[in-house]
Write a protein that binds this DNA or RNA. Sequence first.
DNA 1: TTTTTTGTTATATTGTGTATATAACAAATT
DNA 2: AATTTGTTATATACACAATATAACAAAAAA
Lengths: 132, 132
Amino acid sequence: MFIQIEPNSDISIYEQLTRQIIEGIAKGDMQPGEILPSVRNLAADLGVNMHTVNKSYHELERKGIVVIRPKSGAVIRPKEERVLNAEQLEAIERNIKPVVAEGMVLGATEDQIESMMKKVFADLQLTTCEGL
Amino acid sequence: MFIQIEPNSDISIYEQLTRQIIEGIAKGDMQPGEILPSVRNLAADLGVNMHTVNKSYHELERKGIVVIRPKSGAVIRPKEERVLNAEQLEAIERNIKPVVAEGMVLGATEDQIESMMKKVFADLQLTTCEGL
DNA sequence: TTTTTTGTTATATTGTGTATATAACAAATT
DNA sequence: AATTTGTTATATACACAATATAACAAAAAA
């Protein structure tokens, strides 16, 4: 995995880790069904504490992205299981709202925000090759 | 102003305040050029500390949404001054990225995310009446 | 079946950020 | 002249982030 932690970021380490793992899955760097590195191994690789990685994995489980098998590992949920329920849809909308509002107030048009979204979407899905 | 603070939220008070002020401006509840309530008044209204409100106002200034005139007040920047610079565009994109990535991994399609964005956009711009 | 690795749990410490409280200051406003 | 304003300073309490160490029991590997 290609994860880069910035210790002096205003984003906490476990949050940086969580985001980068999510982006990694989105990009296809990590396939559904795969097991994430053990908390001890990844912690050693990144030079952070075991518990910080563990916290990130549990955050991913809370979001419904991985399933933690006790004493075994964190498995990326297969695509079949990724059916958006109402709760998750609301969570996404709750996340989008402040971002869009801030963009609007700063003077961005709907088109600008939409094209930004599409750009991000395209960047992430570049290596996924959905249709194959 | 119609601001509601949830003390037991996982979002900090000054962050809740910042978001709701931004949404208020987006909706048109507060017009550009208007002066935000004094930190002491708003703090008293909401039942929070003066410094918490002050922190929120400075966060709004950092984002480029208000201008603080020392010993006077925080003024909502007029629309004419709202020209998105490169830095702000990057900030918006940086905010959008993790939200879109999470949505994708949870199984949302580009269309789903796009329509969610448009819904949020429409809700916020409902009372703005741009063209009048 | 040993040995190793695994996540889990517990305790403790350090540092940072949030939020509050109180007070005083000087400039702006009334 | 009196009040209100943001600013600055100090102090306290609390929660969270991150680390360190240790021990445990189950899973995986030898």
